[in-house]
């Protein structure tokens, strides 16, 4: 049964969740474009962000200061990424490793297993929720969960901040330059290895923000990053690997596809609609909506 009201509601719900998915995808694509690697442990940084958020809200700040907790969670995840990078990722460039892609895949999957099992050991299999005092918000005649809406607005703010960092600061200039030529920035006198470290921290920090914002919406548990990571990679393929606008647009598209599919086709298959979208994009434009055909120099 088609109703305009249900359609609008689903559309808004899809956009809201899509914006948060996009944050995750942004982190993946950003790390890829600077460090030239896929971080398969992205979902575990999402998980870490959600746990930090949970403990800050429940143990320290209370649900009203959820936004302070989210900022602190983002900072904590950035810091963890920033500390891990020199140990695990940097040897990719300094250790005389010939097959860098393989190396990155192996170490990040190892990191994924370590983080997931560490979380299970420390937390147990329990699912937690920090709770929220944000009630339902009416968008016109349509109800929307306050926590979701707040999460989407914060995700949007994080994206704007990220954009300002890239476009308006010296660090952003260096990051954009190194996404185009690593050798080029090195001969310009930029220490690319330190840039990698910052980029890795920022990328996983974006996943951490997504985890923190979604903590009251989805539950907090050791494997809660799995689904969002899958979404993140779906978005990357739909939008085009390495494209920042692609990640944002595809994130929203994915959210909308899932939401409309669930409302008008069948809700148990919610996670499948994104893959239908993915297959359609692969058939029509295999490099993704915003992707450029890859050329290895």
């Amino acid at each position: 049964m088609f109703s305009a009201e249900l359609f609008t509601q689903s559309l808004i719900a899809g956009i809201v969740i899509g914006i948060i998915y996009a944050l995750m995808a942004l982190g993946i694509t950003f790390i890829y474009s600077i460090v030239k690697m896929i971080n398969w442990a992205m979902g575990e940084f999402y998980m870490l962000g959600s746990f930090v958020q949970y403990f800050l809200v429940v143990g320290l700040l209370g649900p009203d200061l959820w936004w302070v907790a989210a900022l602190l969670s983002a900072a904590a995840v950035f810091l963890v990424g920033w500390l891990i990078e020199p140990v695990l990722i940097k040897p990719m460039f300094t250790g005389g490793i010939e097959r860098r892609d393989d190396y990155a895949t192996v170490v990040t999957i190892a990191l994924l297993l370590l983080m997931r099992n560490l979380a299970t050991a420390l937390n147990g299999p329990y699912q937690r929720s920090p709770g929220t005092n944000l009630g339902t918000v009416m968008l016109g005649p349509l109800p929307e969960s306050g926590a979701r809406l707040a999460a989407a607005l914060c995700a949007l703010a994080a994206m704007v901040l990220f954009w300002v960092l890239l476009k308006k600061t010296w660090l952003g200039l260096a990051l954009r330059a190194s996404s185009q030529s690593r050798v080029g920035v090195q001969i310009a006198g930029v220490d690319i290895l330190r840039l990698d470290q910052v980029a890795f921290g920022i990328g996983v920090g974006l996943a951490g923000v997504a985890g923190a914002l979604l903590a009251p919406v989805f539950l907090v548990f050791p494997t809660n990053g799995v689904v969002t990571t899958t979404k993140g990679f779906e978005i990357i393929v739909i939008g085009g690997l390495g494209s920042i606008p692609g990640a944002v647009v595809a994130g929203i598209l994915l959210g909308v596809a899932e939401s409309l599919g669930a409302a008008f086709i069948s809700s148990p298959y919610q996670n499948a609609y994104g893959f239908v979208l993915l297959l359609a994009v692969l058939l029509i434009k295999p490099s993704g909506l915003f992707g450029e055909r890859m050329r290895h120099a």
Partner: peptide
């Protein structure tokens, strides 16, 4: 050169 950046930005790096 950094293809997606302007000439001025290229020189600022």
């Amino acid at each position: 050169v950094f293809g997606d950046m302007s000439l001025v930005e290229n020189l600022l790096v």
